[in-house]
Nucleic acid binder design. Structure first.
Lengths: 341, 341
DNA sequence: ATACTGATTGCAAGCGTTTGCAAAAAAGAT
DNA sequence: ATCTTTTTTGCAAACGCTTGCAATCAGTAT
C-alpha cells in the first residue's frame, strides 16, 4: 500500500537496556515498573542505562501486556467554557505530578451515543476516566458493569455507586442569597440550571432555604430556568425583567448565565449594580474580567480536578475500595456587582 | 503486589469476530483497517459482527504491531488562556470528524526539559503532534531528526522545515493601526509580545508599516514590550500612561494584554474609549465579554486548529510531502473600545 | 561442609494487531 | 477442460512489555 514506510527510528527498548547492562530484559522491566526485589546495584545500573539511552516506555506494549498504561481519560462536553478549563487545569497539574498522561475526549462528537462512547473509552488504553459531563444518561451502567475506575466531577449519581468530587452547592447558594438579603434585597430573581442536574437543584434549594430563614416568601415567578449557558442566562434574565415589581437582585446559578443576565440588564437600559445587583456561581476566570467585576460563589475548580485525580488513582490502585464522595467548600467572593438596596 | 486484579472484562478481539464469522483473524484485521482486497460479502459480515459484539480496537496492540494508533498529541503551554481553548476546539472538532483521539500534553510540567519531553511524546503512541507552544527551543530538532510528523500553530520556524499554520499577523496589525489612524489618532501606543516570538515581531512590523504609510513618525517610546499575558499588559500600559503627551490610543498585540491595559487605564481614572481607544488581537471569547466590548483583530483560531489537523494527517499519510505553510486571514472586528479622536 | 531459606534473576508465554508470503479461489483465456 | 492471472484468504512472525514459574545465588542455621 505504501512503499517502504520510513520506519520510525527504531525506539530504544528494554532489550537494548538489558543488553547494555548485561541483565535479562525481565529484570529491566521489573526495575522500570518498580518491582521491589531487585538488587540495588542492578537497579542503579539499569536506571542509568535507561537514562543514557533515552529510553521511553511504549505505553501500547505495556498496556497490552497487562500493565498499567499510566494514561487516564477526561471526558468533557467541550473546551469552550471557562469552567471546564479550570477543572482540566487542576487535573493536568496533578497528573503531571504523578507522571500520568491524559487523553481528552469531548462528547460533542457523539451526542446521543454517549454510552457507546464511554464504552469505547473504557476499552481503549486508559486506566481510568474522569467525567465532567452533565446529564450522564447511561454512561455509568456500562462503566460499573465493567468495573472500570472512574470519578464524577460536580455530578451527582443517583445510584450512589460512584466516586464523586463536588462542592457545597447548597451552602454556596445559601451564602449568596443571604448576602443579597443582608444588602437589603428581598425580590431576588434566580436563574437556575437544568433541573436534571444535581448541582442546579442544590443551588435552588440553598436559595430557597436562605429566603425561608429570613422570612421571605418564596415566589416561583422569580425563578427562571436556564441551562448554564450564557444565552440562556440572557433569556432568563429578560423574563425576570418583565416582572411587575422588578427584582432588585438576581442570583445566577453559574457565572456564564450571570454574564448573559448582565447583557440583558444593560440592554434594558438598567445598570449594574445601581439598579440591579447580581451574583454568579463558579468564579471562572472571566468573572473578574467583566465589568463590573462579578461577585460570585467560588468553586475550587482546579482543586476539584486535583482531588478527582487522586481519587481515581486510588481507585485504580485499589479496585475494591468502596466509592467515596468528597465535597469541597465554596466561598463567596465579593466584587463589584452588588449594592445595598 | 495486588491480589487477583479483577481482570478487566476480557475485551472483544478480532479473534472473536473471526470465530463468529468463520473467517481468519487476518481477514478481520484487513476489513477493520480498510484493506481493499476483501470480498464485499465478507466485509459486510465482519462489520456486522464487530458492531454486534461491540468491538473496540485496542490502540495499544495496533500501534505495537506497526499500524497507526489514530491518536495525535497536542502540546500546549496550558489551558488557562482563551486562545489555546479556541485552537483546541478546532482541533478537537476536526479530529472527531476523522475519528482520531487526542492526547493532551502541557509543557508546564517540564519547563526547561521541553526537548526531552517532545522526545517522549514522539516515542509514545501518537501518530503525530500539534505544537501550540511559543519559544520552541529545540523541540524541532528532535522531531525532525526522528522524522516525526508535526505541525506548528501560529509559530514561526527558523529552519523553514516545518508544517505551519498561522495567520496574517502583519496585515492584521496594519489594519488595526490604520483603523486607529483613520479615527484621528496619531500617538498610538503598542504593547508588544516577546520579541523572540515571530508573530509578535510581525505585529510590530505591521504597526510600523501603517504608521509609515500615513506619515507618522515611529516613536520607540510608544512601544512597551509585554509577554502576551494580562499582567504584562497591565504593566506595559502603565508605562505607556506615564508618557508625556499621553497616547490617545493603544494597540495591544493580543487580547489578554489588552485586558491588562484596560485595567491600568481605568486605574488611572481614564475611561475607554473616551480618553483612550484600545484595540486587541486574537478575538478570544472574552473579548466580547469585557466592557466595553473590545475591538480586536480576529484570528480564526478554531479554523487554525482544524487546518492544523488536516495538515498533520496529510503529513502522516504522506511522510515525504515537503512541509507546507498555510496562512489564514485575520480580520478587524470593530466593537466598542475605540472612538474618533 | 550441608541443607535450608529467601532474595534475585532468567525463561517463555502471552497480550491484540498488522503484514509479508504463500496457498486457495475465482475469473479469464485458450 | 486446462493453464494463467488476479483476487481473496490464511498462517505465522513480529511489535515491546509484564509476569508466573523455575532456576540460581547468597546467607544462615545445622
Amino acid at each position: 500500500m505504501n512503499g517502504t514506510p520510513p520506519r520510525k527510528n527504531r525506539q530504544v527498548t528494554i532489550v537494548d537496556i538489558a543488553r547494555e547492562t548485561g541483565v535479562s530484559y525481565s529484570t529491566v522491566s521489573r526495575v522500570l515498573s518498580g518491582f521491589e526485589f531487585v538488587k540495588e546495584d542492578t537497579r542503579q545500573r539499569v536506571l542509568e542505562a535507561a537514562q543514557r539511552l533515552g529510553y521511553v516506555a511504549n505505553i501500547g506494549a505495556r498496556s497490552l501486556a497487562g500493565g498499567k498504561s499510566h494514561v487516564i481519560g477526561l471526558l468533557v462536553p467541550g473546551l469552550d467554557n471557562g469552567y471546564i478549563g479550570e477543572v482540566a487545569r487542576g487535573i493536568d497539574e496533578e497528573l503531571s505530578r504523578v507522571n500520568y498522561d491524559l487523553m481528552l475526549y469531548t462528547t460533542h462528537r457523539q451526542r446521543g451515543k454517549e454510552s457507546t462512547y464511554a464504552h469505547s473509552i473504557a476499552n481503549s488504553l486508559t486506566d481510568g476516566l474522569i467525567l465532567v459531563v452533565p446529564l450522564l444518561t447511561d454512561y455509568l451502567q456500562r462503566l460499573q458493569a465493567q468495573n472500570f475506575p472512574y470519578v464524577l466531577v460536580d455530578q451527582g449519581d443517583p445510584t450512589n455507586q460512584s466516586n464523586i468530587v463536588d462542592a457545597t452547592n447548597w451552602q454556596g447558594a445559601y451564602a449568596a442569597t443571604e448576602y443579597l438579603i443582608n444588602l437589603g434585597h428581598s425580590r431576588i430573581g434566580l436563574i437556575s440550571g437544568l433541573m436534571q442536574i444535581a448541582s442546579a437543584r442544590e443551588r435552588l434549594e440553598g436559595y430557597k432555604a436562605a429566603l425561608a430563614d429570613h422570612k421571605i416568601a418564596f415566589d416561583p415567578d422569580l425563578v427562571a430556568e436556564g441551562d448554564f449557558w450564557q444565552s440562556s442566562g440572557y433569556q432568563a434574565a429578560l423574563s425576570l425583567l418583565d416582572l411587575k415589581p422588578l427584582p432588585t437582585a438576581i442570583f445566577a446559578s453559574n457565572d456564564l448565565s450571570a454574564f448573559g443576565a448582565m447583557d440583558a440588564i444593560r440592554e434594558r437600559g438598567l445598570s449594574i449594580p445601581e439598579d440591579i445587583s447580581i451574583v454568579g456561581f463558579d468564579d471562572i476566570p472571566q468573572a473578574s474580567l467583566v465589568h463590573p467585576k462579578l461577585t460570585t460563589v467560588r468553586q475550587p475548580l482546579d482543586q476539584m480536578g486535583r482531588v478527582a485525580v487522586q481519587m481515581l488513582l486510588d481507585q485504580i490502585e485499589n479496585p475494591s475500595h468502596p466509592p467515596r464522595r468528597i465535597t469541597l467548600a465554596t466561598q463567596l467572593i465579593v466584587r463589584d456587582s452588588c449594592k445595598p438596596r
